[in-house]
Design a protein around this nucleic acid. Structure first.
Length: 694
RNA sequence: GGGCAGUUAGCUCAGCGGCAGAGCACUGCAUUCACAUUGCAGGGGCCAUAGGUUCAAAUCCUAUACUGCCCACCA
């Protein structure tokens, strides 16, 4: 009879939950030393994908092995409210009904988001259960729980008291669709073909014999921002413009007189070596502007429209030298009209094709504008040092180690963190009269201790902090991991975890990123239904090798399914041979060559697997277990045993089977539990989950 | 522009100085035997390219090409 996971899995999971052993406080007495993993909380935006299944498998393998080794294991589950992302999916849903969030109003809208959260939050947690994840569900947390919100307030006010939080008008990344600011890490750059326009700015009182013929030519990809130009800048060493530094240029369109200045930030090799300076809409220009005390004139508003002269409405005329004529136009329209006007005026020297990296909102892919805005910032200089220290000192180790380099690079060049967002779904900034909410990563940064009750001095915090391992995707190392590290150091005075395991990115067979919108995602629950949870887990684990990408194929899941069947039938054979006599668990004698070989091989397998798991070598562990069980045990020893039937042989069969299912349990928890329950053993534990690792 | 990975069987990947391996797919044979979701046997490889080190290179070094990812203010 083949193994039928559907008949086994749900029952076994229920049995585990009822046992209480997912909760470390209810584990038997031999479990003493704590071992904690906090789950990277999935966003409540939707359902899980194969990447989540991968990470859940990894964490459950670690937790189950440690539990068997006698650790007081806590795997703390939860979900993240995921500010912008969740707000967006709910808005999308409303849009299908022909509504916007403004139709509902803030309160009603947030009610809608909570409904969404209930539905998808639960779905996500159930998906983890289907995979066999041994989380302590009694400790499930959500980043907007009451207690968690207290932690946010405490953290914000702590920083505020230290003077590290300030409010200021700064250039921020602005998504005009989400109508909110974004941090640098929330941008995705996309290559776009565009132009580099060479525009002639007239020079007032040009020096005699100047090569430019009374003009200075600037190169720009954003001509529409010239309405806000307050200088032209060149490199001080640039001989071409030596005589022009200190002179005045006349800005076309508005006829504003602007200085020609010099600054070392200008690269004389790019374009003409002369740059238009728009301090309100460019980071470098802002720096130059501050240095040279230039005015910052905002010309693009929060809707992505030109606001140069609010008192003058846009005119329908096609070419205009009147700045007010662009008022209210969209950026693209304004760009087009400005170029047309410059052409008419003979001020456009030439146009070159130019491909540039355009920043997009990572949640909705809208082009992000740089605009000055009043925002809250968290000063990063001290916190960056806190994040750097424990990693440099080796107290926190990255696996693989080469992820430390980008981590340090980011910290070295860090900018202050814009922590306010102009959305509705999230934690309100805990200051009277503020309507903005906090960046979702501000709450995620507190996850390893806020989930354990901080700022209260709880027993859990004392018992289970710091955690052991954080297993995460590589794209959130700086976005999240770095921030957890400095938060832990600042609030707990201790590292949040000792190991950061950076797991592989799961790609499609063709090497594409898995994504719902591309239709390339694979639903792990469907796989579980087809192959069984153990097969999915083992197949995934089998594929986690050194390479940091996994091109996902179901071949390995099929292998996992076959392997389940093999284990199932081998155990049936052993049970049959053994009869009803209860096995005492003692190591049997090796009476011949075959006996000796299998016992030795089991011992070797145990050592290798334990060592591999210490080093986070999941795929290697799976290969070793597969080879041992299939080839050494089934192909060789079981076949041999048919020729040398004896009581001792039967004991060896039982001993090796028991050892094998223990070693396999972290990888394939359901089938190994089911077999364990059926085995006639003298000193049987309630379940294999709390059996002793060899 | 800078950094990091990768390139080995039809596909997905191991191996990382000493006879080229696994899973899946493929071919042949075997069904009262724990298991056909099986067993046995087999086919299939210029280990990306070019140099170098070595008694010996898929493996170490140097280039090149291609692929993927991360970071970056080049207007």
């Amino acid at each position: 009879m083949p193994y039928e996971p559907k008949k086994v899995e749900n029952k076994i999971y229920q049995f585990w939950e009822e046992s209480g052993f997912f909760n470390p406080d209810k584990l038997p007495a031999r479990h003493k030393k704590p071992y904690t993993i906090v789950i990277p909380p999935p966003n409540v935006t939707g359902e899980l994908h194969i990447g989540h299944a991968l990470n859940a498998t990894i964490q459950d393998i670690l937790i189950r092995q440690k539990r068997m080794q006698g650790f007081k294991t806590l795997w703390l589950p939860g979900t993240d409210h995921a500010g912008i992302a969740t707000q967006n999916v709910v808005e999308k849903k409303l849009r299908k009904e022909g509504k916007t969030r403004f139709d509902l109003g803030r309160e009603k809208f947030i009610e809608e988001v909570w409904k969404w959260k209930e539905e998808y939050g639960n779905k996500i947690l159930n998906q983890f259960k289907k995979l066999g994840s041994s989380c302590d569900w009694s400790r499930t947390r959500f980043t907007m729980d009451q207690g968690y919100s207290d932690a946010i307030k405490e953290a914000f006010l702590h920083y505020h008291k230290k003077g590290w939080i300030y409010k200021g008008k700064r250039i921020v990344n602005w998504c005009k669709r989400c109508a909110t600011s974004l941090s640098d890490l929330e941008l995705e750059y996309k290559e776009e073909k565009g132009n580099l326009w060479f525009i002639k700015y007239p020079v007032k009182d040009p020096p005699a014999g100047e090569a430019g013929g009374g003009f200075i030519t600037v190169a720009t990809t954003r001509p529409e921002t010239m309405l806000g130009d307050t200088a032209v800048a060149v490199n001080p060493k640039d001989k071409r413009y030596k005589n022009l530094i200190g002179k005045t240029a006349v800005l076309p369109l508005v006829n504003r007189e602007i200085p020609i200045i010099s600054d070392i930030l200008i690269d004389s090799k790019f374009g003409t070596g002369a740059v238009k300076v728009t301090p309100a809409h460019d980071i470098t220009d802002q720096a130059i502007g501050e240095k040279h005390k230039l005015e910052a004139i905002q010309v693009i508003d929060e809707k992505g429209r030109i606001i140069n002269s609010p008192e003058k409405p846009a005119r329908s005329g096609f070419a205009t030298g009147d700045a007010g004529g662009y008022n209210g136009l969209k950026i693209d329209e304004a760009r087009e009209k400005i170029i047309e006007y410059l052409k008419c005026q003979n001020l456009l020297e030439k146009t070159e094709n130019y491909t540039r990296q355009v920043p997009k909102c990572y949640r909705c892919s809208t082009t992000v504008e740089l605009i000055p805005s009043m925002q809250w910032f968290l000063k990063m200089s001290e916190l960056a040092k806190l994040a750097e220290k424990p990693v440099k000192a080796g107290k926190i180790k990255f696996h693989p180690k080469n992820f430390e380099k980008p981590y340090f690079d980011w910290l070295k060049n860090i900018k202050d963190w814009c922590i306010s967002r102009q959305i509705w779904w999230g934690h309100k900034i805990p200051i009277e009269g503020e309507t903005d909410v906090l960046d979702t990563w501000f709450s995620a940064a507190l996850w390893p201790f806020a989930t354990l009750g901080w700022p209260e001095k709880t027993k859990d915090l004392k018992n289970y902090y710091p955690t052991a391992v954080l297993s995460t995707a590589r794209d959130i190392i700086n976005l999240w991991v770095a921030r957890m590290i400095f938060s832990g150091m600042e609030f707990m005075k201790e590292i949040p975890f000792s190991h950061v395991y950076v797991h592989a990115t799961v790609l499609t067979r063709d090497g594409q990123r898995m994504s719902k919108s591309l239709g390339t995602g694979i639903d792990p629950v469907k796989l579980i239904e087809e192959f069984g949870a153990d097969a999915v887990r083992f197949g995934i684990a089998f594929q986690i090798m050194g390479n940091q990408d996994i091109k996902f194929v179901t071949d390995n899941i099929l292998m996992g399914k076959k392997f389940c069947n093999k284990i199932w039938n081998a155990s049936k054979f052993v049970e049959l041979k053994n009869g009803k006599e209860k096995y005492d668990g003692k190591k049997p004698y090796a009476k011949n060559k075959a006996d000796k070989a299998i016992l030795k091989s089991l011992e070797k397998t145990e050592k290798s697997v334990s060592k591999c798991l210490e080093n986070f070598e999941f795929g290697k562990s799976a290969h070793i277990l597969y080879d041992f069980f299939w080839h050494d045990f089934c192909d060789k020893y079981i076949e041999e045993s048919k020729k040398q039937e004896s009581e001792n042989t039967n004991k060896i069969l039982m001993y090796v089977l028991l050892g094998s299912i223990k070693l396999l349990h972290p990888f394939m928890p359901f089938i190994t539990e089911k077999i364990y329950q059926q085995l006639p053993l003298k000193n049987k534990k309630e379940c294999i989950m709390i059996e002793e690792w060899l």
